[in-house]
Amino acid sequence: MAENPTPADRAAGGIHVSNAGGNVTIGDNNQVAYTVQGSEPSRDPRQEELLQAVRALRGDLTRVVASEQTTALDAELSDVEDEIEGTGAAAPGRLARLRQALADAGAVTGLFASAAAVGQAVGALLGG
């Protein structure tokens, strides 16, 4: 059918749906399935705080000369970010690896408030 049907199109039995923001069924014995596209898993506020701090620190790391320690830290940050986005939470083992990577890169990351925020968020989630 045309984008903007004419009265003749409507009289001929054509159907035009211009906006289907809700559920639409036409005919008998139809079923409606509702799925949320692009929805994220619900997150604990502490995990959300960690995710924001991880993103900030990853941005800050782009401002320093890469080293073995900062490269390893960025890899751990990336893994934590992916896990929180995918499942809603970073597992304790992943958080422990991130904590160690932060400590290993401490000479560089000590300059960034974002590194302190990540460390605090990880500490709160691991209980220490």
Score class of each variant (00 low, 15 high):
26 I>C: 06
125 L>Y: 00
66 A>F: 00
34 Y>P: 03
109 T>E: 07
41 P>R: 01
5 P>F: 14
22 G>K: 12
83 E>V: 03
53 A>N: 11
33 A>S: 14
22 G>S: 13
31 Q>W: 09
16 H>I: 01
74 D>K: 12
74 D>H: 08
113 A>M: 05
92 P>R: 05
97 R>A: 04
101 A>R: 01
27 G>K: 15
77 L>W: 02
39 S>K: 14
79 D>C: 03
111 L>C: 02
35 T>V: 15
50 L>Q: 04
108 V>K: 05
53 A>G: 13
74 D>N: 12
51 L>Y: 04
13 G>C: 04
12 A>P: 04
124 A>L: 08
57 L>H: 07
54 V>R: 05
126 L>N: 07
80 V>L: 03
1 M>I: 05
34 Y>D: 11
21 G>F: 01
109 T>C: 06
115 A>D: 07
102 L>A: 02
100 Q>D: 01
102 L>M: 06
122 V>N: 00
2 A>S: 12
84 I>Y: 02
20 A>N: 12
17 V>C: 06
117 A>V: 06
13 G>I: 02
83 E>P: 09
30 N>K: 15
48 E>Q: 15
31 Q>E: 12
86 G>I: 02
25 T>H: 11
106 G>R: 10
118 V>K: 01
32 V>A: 15
8 A>F: 09
95 L>D: 02
69 Q>E: 15
9 D>H: 09
108 V>L: 07
4 N>I: 10
90 A>G: 08
81 E>K: 10
23 N>Y: 02
19 N>Q: 14
108 V>H: 01
34 Y>A: 13
29 N>M: 11
34 Y>Q: 10
110 G>I: 00
125 L>K: 07
13 G>N: 08
2 A>C: 07
9 D>S: 06
